[in-house]
Design a binder for these strands. Structure first.
Lengths: 131, 131
DNA sequence: TCATTTGTACTATTTGTAATAGTACAAGAA
DNA sequence: TTCTTGTACTATTACAAATAGTACAAATGA
């Protein structure tokens, strides 16, 4: 579990941990059932207070990314199925709009953005062979 | 300038203003040369401290979204050209990756995400006829 | 049974950022 | 000059993040 945490970043450390774990799972670096380090282990690895790690794990569990089993450890959760849900798709709308706004102010038009998006999607699909 | 600011949000008020203005410009609601309210005007409209508005305007000027002219007011800047810049495109990579990760954890696969993305792009192009 | 492991809970403290309040200044317009 | 408008500065309050330290709860495993 090599996480790059930047204590000087404006995004909170616990949030960086949440993001990093979600990223690793989405990339297939961790699969359901895999054990991740204990709160105390990761705290000493990263020289971060255990409370901060615990907070990150609690958020990850709330989001259904991991499951914790007392005295056994913490594990990557089974992936939720639930596709086709319209409500869920709407959760992505703000991110998509944000992307469009950012692109605009970088001087990147709709066509270029489409290309960049499709390129990124292809990269992801190459890396993950297990989806 | 009807901005919806939520003082209880976790994102700072000045950042909400920055986002709202960038959003309005990207949607074509404001065009280069348009005057936006003065610091004091917007402060009294939104009942927010002028210092907070000033901070937002300073950030917007740093990003090249607006230009301020002392004693005249603040205006939407000319849009920067600068397309085709590889470095700029790389700035969008984190947002694109983030989108992919969020979609994954919502149970939305690559194909569905592509569809959602293209739908969003079409909506934007319908709204803006002046790009 | 009993020690160990592991996540959880709690309080106190420090630090940094956001926001407000109030005042004052600088530069251009009228 | 007077007014407008953005800018700068200090002080203060409020809140979230992070650390530190301690203790507890539940399951494991010898």
């Amino acid at each position: 579990m090599h996480l790059n945490i930047d204590p000087r970043s404006s995004t909170p450390v616990y949030q960086q941990i949440v993001d990093a774990v979600k990223n690793a799972v989405a990339r297939g670096l961790y699969n359901p059932g895999d054990k991740i380090p204990t709160v105390r282990e990761m705290a000493s690895e990263l020289t971060i207070n255990p409370n901060t790690i615990a907070k990150a794990y609690q958020k990850l569990e709330q989001e259904g990314v991991i499951v914790t089993m007392r005295s056994r450890g913490t594990f990557i959760a089974e992936r939720k199925a639930s596709p086709g849900n319209e409500a869920l798709k709407k959760l992505l709308k703000p991110s998509l709009d944000r992307l469009r706004v950012d692109a605009f102010h970088l001087g990147i038009g709709p066509d270029e953005l489409k290309t960049l998006f499709l390129e990124t999607m292809e990269e992801w699909e190459k890396e993950r062979r297990d989806i």
